[in-house]
Design a protein around this nucleic acid. Structure first.
Lengths: 238, 238
DNA sequence: CGGACTGTTGAGAAATTTCAATGTTGGTGG
DNA sequence: CCACCAACATTGAAATTTCTCAACAGTCCG
């Protein structure tokens, strides 16, 4: 919950009242084991889940059975806030590592709709930032080479984790194996292995044992064609 | 405006009051010539634009200068409804053909926030359907072959245009050239040309002179791996 | 110690791109 | 009415990136 507020403070100025209301949204905590499915597509949802620890993914698969990871969620992210208006999702959400979520009942958000429109506005905003991240993902998947895709993933995650205090000196935990990374980058795992080697040998990043260490941020960002504007982290006018 | 309501009626039941309020949102109309930029990324927005006639696109480019079309908008779509919460966009919006928009001032939506939360909920929902379409786009760009990408584009547009009464018997106008189509499918224009020929020779679709004719809907949908659930067109519980 | 999962490497195959040339169309001005 | 031009589409052949298949190595854990 603190991670959420940390992130939001990058975007909005929140009154003590508003922070209180946001904290008050949280209901039951729920724990999931690694690889467990958290939300199944097409199923009716009665609450949305705020990720408080661990990493979760949204993913979708083609009829061939190939899976595409659409977005990685880090603590402070609502993994399925969009299930509040949409009611059912078009994709699955899974825990990647052990995850703890806080469930926010949709009726509490409904109560907010009349009473605290600014908070609803902020929730809406959050869902749109996910959209923006996914649009950047489209660009990555279609217009960047395999090595740039991996570089871009590392840059983005570094940025997003830093905001919530989970990255230091360009290093952060990432509980992925190379198959996961491949499913996110839209390439095969063997090609991922080769490209990770190139990144390592170029002195840009190392990814080993679920940990990423960025050695040359500037070089990596350049290779990745990474510009963080799409993350909407600068403070905005309310 | 009627196109918008037509589309919304597929998703929600609207009272006469609510339809009236939605109609009342519309302000100035604005016309754009083919290829003109409608919204430039990073610029502050004071209103959102509802497309009433013509086709518009959202697009983004990589530093290499290669452009990716993220979504095609058809009449009845709000092309930048997300600029209401986000204030500035992460991508550009352009007219593809001659387009007419209705500008909806953000202050009118703000007024709705306290007074008519259900309408805000519906607007929020609309932005999330765009998100869903873009997620399907990610799957298309990463996991489908060039020919399936084109097939998928035709299937989706057919569906979306039918809802607003702009497709009949599997035929509809699409003011694209092969370069545009290639920039949407994430492939080169020469490969697009070759794959269009294959689609034609397989008796599935023809695309000629800005018009699409689907000859074998079932076969096309199968090749495309197209399932329209992600368009959220079925009527939903309020 | 054995087994399961994960990562690495090599070699050939496939899809798509690139480059370059040619064809087609529709409009415009002489 | 024709000649020409620009934009768009098509085709061929070679190059490139990524994939596939297959083998093998490393590591963790019971």
């Amino acid at each position: 919950m603190d991670a959420l507020l940390k992130k939001l403070r990058h975007r909005f100025s929140l009154s003590a009242d508003e922070e209180g209301l946001l904290r008050g949204l949280g209901g039951e905590p729920a724990d999931f084991a690694p690889r467990q499915t958290v939300v199944r597509r097409d199923e009716l949802q009665r609450f949305s889940r705020l990720l408080v620890s661990g990493f979760a993914i949204r993913h979708k698969e083609a009829s061939s059975g190939e899976r595409q990871i659409l977005e990685i969620h880090v603590p402070g992210d609502f993994v399925d806030l969009h299930s509040f208006p949409l009611k059912r999702l078009d994709h699955d959400v899974s825990a990647l590592s052990a995850c703890r979520f806080i469930n926010v009942p949709h009726e509490r958000m409904t109560a907010l709709e009349g009473a605290h429109p600014r908070l609803i506005h902020i929730l809406w905003h959050m869902t749109l930032v996910d959209g923006s991240i996914q649009r950047e993902g489209m660009l990555t998947l279609s217009r960047r080479t395999a090595i740039a895709r991996l570089a871009h993933i590392f840059c983005e995650l570094h940025c997003r984790l830093e905001v919530v205090g989970l990255a230091e000196n360009g290093a952060f935990a990432l509980p992925f194996n190379q198959v996961d990374l491949a499913e996110f980058a839209g390439i095969t795992s063997v090609h991922t292995s080769r490209m990770l080697r190139e990144l390592r040998e170029a002195g840009l990043v190392t990814f080993k044992g679920g940990e990423v260490r960025i050695h040359d941020m500037k070089g990596l960002a350049q290779l990745a064609d990474f510009t963080p504007a799409y993350l909407y982290l600068g403070n905005q006018p309310a």
